[in-house]
């Protein structure tokens, strides 16, 4: 019932070819076409950050990106961060610092934090707070998330 398009991209280090509806978001493609559900739908309007992924090294709200615009790009999702030792430290810090409650915002938060650490390896608490401003969390009050990122930042060398 709608136009389809074939696209190719790298997803978590693996080359991928898929056929998508032209109106489909990158978020829906990841969840419904590729079947990776770690990236969450929170609002569909780029306001909550639950769908954060990395595209060519930049953090993006995948709900605001068309799937067809992933063509030729390098995508990393929460599942792909498993291969990144720095992200491993970050995930451990989230666990250790109690930064996870219901956990629904957590994957987006971890992806955003990984991007933040990559671009601001010496970020202080204020920078971290600004860095995760676009990621909403309803459970934790953010403090432990900031603590976790800060510890991964300094502790991760």
């Amino acid at each position: 019932m709608s136009l389809k398009h074939d696209i190719g991209f790298t997803l978590n280090g693996v080359k991928k070819r898929v056929t998508v509806d032209v109106g489909m978001t990158a978020l829906d493609m990841l969840r419904d076409v590729v079947g990776l559900t770690g990236t969450k739908y929170g609002c569909g309007e780029g306001e909550c950050g639950a769908c954060t992924i990395q595209v060519d090294g930049l953090s993006m709200n995948s709900c605001l990106m068309f799937a067809v615009d992933c063509d030729g790009r390098d995508l990393v999702t929460i599942e792909g961060l498993a291969a990144d030792p720095r992200a491993d430290a970050l995930r451990e810090a989230f666990v250790e610092h109690g930064a996870v409650q219901c956990g629904f915002c957590t994957p987006g938060m971890v992806v955003q934090a990984a991007h933040l650490l990559a671009t601001h390896p010496d970020a202080d608490a204020e920078t971290i707070k600004r860095g995760i401003e676009g990621n909403l969390c309803r459970c934790t009050g953010y403090k432990k998330i900031v603590d976790a990122i800060e510890s991964a930042c300094c502790g991760g060398k």
Binding site: T37, G38, T39, K40, T77, I78, E79, A82, R91, F94, V95, E96, G98, A99, V100, Q101, G103, F104, T106, P107, V110
Partner: peptide, 15 residues
């Protein structure tokens, strides 16, 4: 540490 936190932080929890 929360028992379910590692799964959640890895994006593996299925809601």
């Amino acid at each position: 540490q929360k028992k379910d936190a590692p799964e959640k932080a890895a994006g593996k929890t299925r809601y």
